[in-house]
Amino acid sequence: MIYEELQRQIEQLRALSRNGVDLSEEIARLEAKLAALKRQTATPAPSPAPSPELDDWERVKLARHPKRPYALDYIQALTEDFYELHGDRLYGDDAAVVAGIARFDGQTVVIVGTQKGRDATENVRRNFGMPHPEGYRKALRVMKLGERFGFPILTLIDTPGAYPGVGAEERNIGGALAQNIYELFNLKVPIIATIIGEGGSGGAIALAIGDRVLMLENAIYSVITPEGCAAILFRDASKAPEAARALKLTAPHLLRLGVIDEIVPEPPGGAHLDPEMALCALKSAWQRHLREVLALPVDVLQKQRREKFHKMGLYEEITESSFS
């Protein structure tokens, strides 16, 4: 069973390689895994062979895969009557953030996401999914609109991070992120945040405060990119794969650390290989969680939202007597 699945993944990757995407590394890795698995089961194992878990770096590559479904793909497939809103009313409109009102599962919702481009032209327009302050301010404006009318909020996160540029700093990107984080805690409507691809640091968390934080199986969420971490801590950006493993940035790790609430399954080999399945999985997760959070009174919801994040972190207690 596991063999067949691995075999299928390898074939799918090969098919994709023929379209000009270099996946030789992934293929080699999967083949090695398959061979290892065959060896393992050739001699009768005392316990069942573990299901093949993707390596963290492979997941980073899947999370960034150019064929992966992006925010608008989910919005278009899962919602009806999406009406996009533009501009932050202060400075401009940032195409790296899409925001609007739509209907999901018979309910009017506000939907906000970071959006990457499919090709070079669109990527220039969308700034590779790296928002400026006006993007975050637009997001907050539209989410507050949702609050006014009692519409629940769905966010889709897929960004390498907030844009590192002069204009962003001039317009106080740090302040914009801080304001979003702060205000999201205070919104009087349910929020479901989903990391669908890259969850890049401050630029991601500024849209990822929610009553539920979901994460796609091959998405990543990290305080810093593996490349950035490698450059700073290891003084060598090419050590990104090691950094990726050290940072524990994949969904299974984050679930264990209590940072996310649920992993949304992807088809074998990644969401891009069977987008239909990925869309379906997110749809049912949203339906289920939305039902749960809509059943709770707002004050309870807000209290739980705060408490959930308040619990995050790990430190060691020392005795008062050793601290004097």
Partner: peptide, 22 residues
């Protein structure tokens, strides 16, 4: 900024502190 060596948990402190500020 955030302490890289604590990974995502350090990022979450941005949320934790901002929530408490209220």
């Amino acid at each position: 900024g955030a302490r890289m060596q604590e990974g995502i948990l350090s990022l979450m402190q941005m949320a934790k502190t901002s929530a408490a500020r209220k």
